[in-house]
Amino acid sequence: MFTLIVDYAVAPDGGSLALSVERLDGKTECFVINRSFASRGTPDYNVVKSTLRSLSQNECEEIANHLGGLVTDATSIDLVADFIKTLKAQSSKVRDT
């Protein structure tokens, strides 16, 4: 599914996180956890979105399972763990995003 983590960042919008990964097809996909101040209290808060596709519940679980194997340095461990936790929570929600 993915070959490596390309980049990661914390946004100055209140805590949104971004994680860019290289896919097997060579494309870079960026996942973002929306934690902006503006989204707090809305259904969009703490939801993971992709720059390339809509994410179904099943895809969220599958992505979460693959991300753990990509951690290559101590700095990214907590960030990737946060994405895994958020994706798993999103996969158990009733609605797809």
Rank of each mutant, 00 (worst) to 15 (best):
R23G: 06
I63T: 02
T28Q: 14
S92C: 12
G41P: 06
I77T: 14
P43D: 09
E59T: 03
L19I: 04
S91I: 00
T42F: 04
H66R: 15
V32S: 03
G69L: 11
L4D: 15
R23N: 12
V6S: 07
D44W: 02
R40W: 05
E62S: 12
V47Q: 02
M1I: 06
T75L: 14
T3F: 06
I77N: 07
D44Q: 12
E62K: 08
Y45L: 08
R40E: 10
C30G: 03
F83M: 04
A74T: 11
D13H: 02
G14E: 06
A18C: 08
K88G: 01
I5P: 03
E61K: 05
L55M: 14
A89E: 11
S39F: 01
A9F: 09
V47P: 00
A9I: 03
R53Q: 15
V6I: 10
S16W: 05
F37S: 10
D13I: 07
E62Q: 12
G69D: 11
S39M: 09
D73V: 04
K93C: 07
Q90M: 14
T75F: 13
D7R: 11
I77D: 14
T72S: 15
A81M: 07
T51P: 03
F83D: 03
G14S: 12
Q90W: 07
K88N: 14
V80I: 11
M1F: 09
T86N: 06
C30K: 13
D96F: 02
T42G: 10
R23V: 04
K27D: 13
A89G: 05
V80G: 06
E22D: 10
L79T: 12
T28I: 15
G41H: 07
L52W: 02
D25Q: 09
T28M: 09
D73L: 05
G68M: 06
L4A: 15
A81E: 14
K49R: 14
A38G: 06
T51H: 04
S39T: 10
D13P: 05
D44K: 05
D44H: 05
I84D: 09
N46F: 02
E62A: 10
I84K: 09
S54M: 11
S16R: 06
V94P: 01
D44F: 06
G26V: 01
D78E: 14
A89H: 04
V10A: 14
P12N: 10
K27W: 04
G15L: 06
L55W: 03
L55K: 06
T86A: 09
D13M: 11
D82P: 00
V6C: 04
V47C: 02
S20K: 13
R95Y: 11
N65T: 11
V10K: 14
V71Y: 05
Y45R: 05
L4Q: 15
R35Y: 02
Q90E: 13
V47F: 01
G14V: 07
L4G: 14
A64H: 03
S50Y: 08
L52C: 05
V48T: 03
G26Q: 08
G41L: 09
K27Q: 14
D7W: 00
R23K: 14
